[in-house]
Amino acid sequence: MSETMVTVRDVHKAYTRGKQSIDVLHGLDLSIPGGDFVALMGPSGSGKTTLLNLIGGLDQPTSGEVWVAGQRIDRMSSGELARWRAANVGFVFQFYNLMPVLTAQRNVELPLLLTGLSAAERAQRAAIALKLVGLADRAHHKPKELSGGQEQRVAIARAIVSDPKILVCDEPTGDLDRKTADEILTLLQQLNRDFGKTIVMVTHDPKAAEYARRTVHLDKGALVGEPAAH
């Protein structure tokens, strides 16, 4: 593993719901080296998705520092964060979040619309990404014509098509049966091992966490114990 990919330093995060302020993260520190595959585990409300959102640049901390891929992202404006996400992060969600009106190929091409690539280049890269996840033959199918596992593969292809430095996965197997979940996790493991992608994955499932190189436990907004290596 190479230099540090993620550094979270004394991060606090509080949400305001109505008149109530809810502290989610309390002075959290975390460091993830490049090329690592980390599973974030913890009970509901422990702050793991909030932490993932901060690492993915979807949200900003109330205080503290967040460094990802060599850049401090907690002070970026909304526009800067959008550009940074497009260049550095791939996202995989529990419910796939594909565009139902677009084919698998077009879904995978979406992040590339933000680049200066030509239509032919976009199509070529999307085809490669789909081939990598084993769905080259389903490129022209719409999400409703695919199984859950296939949809998640398309989502992974979309996440890796722009060659991001880090993949942020929020319960990527939460909606899948065991067998399909294992296939998806094997695919993520392959992306980590063969392509050196840094992966941060939130999961409730201890079996899923076993696919990661190490597991970090959160509870009540703080890390619990030492990260466990697998």
Binding site: G56, G79, A82, R83, P111, L114
Partner: peptide, 15 residues
Amino acid sequence: IPELAVLKTLGFPNG
């Protein structure tokens, strides 16, 4: 709304 949020997640700016 969730689809639009995904676009923003992928890096589509607000504008």
